[in-house]
């Protein structure tokens, strides 16, 4: 199984690099001078994002990093279509975003599984709402659960599995919809470091194997450098991009060495940026 997976991953990467050299990558999602603020009854509205511009290319793995409250979650919600911008436009694959869609999947930080459905019921939820035939559904659910290593727990209820397992299920539930873009809002925020690393590898594996675009929000700089093609550093009030930094490491992403000099260099430059913001 492992062998087969790794073989597939290699072919996927080869294809990807071929495409990259042949043509310029297409833009998957772009935010054009977006402004957003939450309206509240008692206080005056706080501006979360102002004149925000961002392009994310097809197949990229982009990480958003920034101080707490700078609007990272809000940004993901805008892209997901759960919020509408006050000014500007969110464009996904050339089309204006006006609501959620299964092609833009979201993995929430925690506790978003339906407690009344089993693991496989949760994963089947999207397929069922879109009217996929039962037989088709079962095979797709089994396949994706196998991919995230949760087949043994297919009949368990969410409260019977650990936090890390629950996140695997949440990822499977999103991926089974075959999304073109996956938004991950601190999916590993509540996990211990061992769980974190295994989930990081899983997400990278899935990204390379299935080839969709991913946007990850994290507080962990190591995680950002380890996983991304590009790191977007944000500042707060109002949320803006202060740096968009491509990660140029010699190794292929799965084999990135967290202790190499280059890794450390990128890590410390982000650290400096973030400490400048808070200063």
């Amino acid at each position: 199984m492992t062998q087969r997976t790794s073989h597939r991953i290699e072919t996927a990467t080869d294809v990807e690099t071929d495409v990259e050299t042949a043509t310029e990558k297409k833009v998957c999602v772009s935010l054009r001078s977006v402004a957003f603020s939450y309206s509240s009854i008692d206080a005056q509205p706080t501006t979360v994002l102002e004149d925000f511009n961002l392009d994310v290319h097809q197949g990229d793995f982009v990480t958003l990093i920034g101080p707490s409250g700078c609007g990272k979650t809000t940004l993901l919600r805008l892209i997901a279509g759960l919020e509408q911008p006050l000014v500007g436009d969110v464009v996904f694959q050339g089309q204006h975003v006006d609501g959620p869609n299964h092609k833009r999947g979201v993995v929430f930080q925690q506790g978003s599984l339906f407690p009344w459905l089993t693991v496989s019921g949760n994963v089947a939820f999207g397929l069922k709402s879109r009217g996929v035939a039962p037989s088709e559904r079962t095979s797709q659910v089994a396949e994706i659960l196998d991919l995230v290593g949760m087949s043994a727990f297919a009949q368990s209820y969410p409260h019977e599995i650990s936090g890390g397992m629950a996140q695997r299920v949440a990822i499977a539930r999103t991926l089974v919809n075959d999304p073109d873009l996956v938004l991950l809002d601190e999916p590993m925020g509540a996990l211990d470091s061992f769980m974190r690393q295994s989930l990081q590898s899983l997400i990278l594996q899935l990204h390379q194997r299935l080839g969709m675009t991913m946007i990850l929000v994290t507080h962990d700089i190591d995680e950002a450098v380890f996983m991304s093609d590009r790191i977007v550093v944000m500042t707060s009030r109002p949320g803006r991009i202060i740096e968009s930094l491509p990660v140029t490491l010699p190794e292929r992403r799965m084999q990135r060495d967290r202790s190499s000099a280059k890794f450390f260099e990128i890590r410390s430059s982000i650290m400096t940026l973030l400490s400048d913001i808070s200063a």
């Binding site: 759960l82 929430f108 978003s112 939820f125 709402s129």
Partner: peptide, 19 residues
Amino acid sequence: QLYEAARTLGAGQRTLVFR
């Protein structure tokens, strides 16, 4: 959050109510 999760999974109004 459960409604939002369901909506990003492609759920329509009926699904939100009944499921």
